[in-house]
């Protein structure tokens, strides 16, 4: 994909998001959990949605400028986005989310070596001495350091309690 195409696509996504922000997100997600009569009479400058509205206006304006600049641009660079690397990145992110989800169940010391092992392997290292070494040393060192140094307890597994 050409760089300027990417810029234009980003610009369009930003504009779509702005529309969503104005018509749905701000009206739905700027709410007050209290019935508070003093808020009804407050000046508009103090209202919670004053700054967000101002901000999104500026955002739309500068997005348009970016799009215009992109269409005029003569730079012919390409964005590096290969299918292979995108798949690898998605896998790493997915692993991280699963890791966070499993932390409270299995605990830091059990699940972290596995997480490290998968990541190191995914990034292409095949020397098992290194892989197992770092996967074990790193989490244990961290646990030791955090607890002994700072009395901070890293997530413990509910399963073992």
């Amino acid at each position: 994909m050409k760089f300027k195409t990417a810029e234009i696509i980003t610009g369009i996504i930003f504009l779509l998001y702005s529309a969503l922000y104005i018509f749905w997100i701000t009206p739905t997600y700027v709410t007050n959990a209290l019935n508070d009569s003093s808020i009804q009479t407050i000046a508009w400058t103090l209202r919670p949605e004053a700054l967000p509205n101002l901000n999104i206006g500026a955002f739309i304006f500068f997005t348009c400028i970016m799009i215009i600049q992109a269409t005029r641009s003569k730079v012919d660079e390409l964005v590096e986005l290969s299918f292979n690397s995108s798949f690898k990145l998605l896998f790493i992110i997915a692993c991280s989310f699963i890791y966070v989800a499993l932390l409270p169940i299995f605990g830091f010391l059990t699940i972290s070596p596995l997480f490290m092992l998968i990541l190191v392997y995914t990034l292409g290292l095949r020397d098992w001495r290194y892989i197992i070494g770092i996967s074990l040393v790193m989490p244990f060192l961290m646990d030791f350091f955090f607890y002994q140094g700072f009395q901070i307890i890293l997530p413990e597994g509910q399963l073992w309690k």
Binding site: T31, N32, A33, D36, I39, P48, N55
Partner: peptide, 18 residues
């Protein structure tokens, strides 16, 4: 700024984008 606006509004207590 958009990200900085997330959270309780200091003056009205409105919950924004949480």
């Amino acid at each position: 700024i958009m990200i900085g606006l997330v959270g309780f509004d200091a003056v009205t207590g409105a919950e924004r984008y949480t």
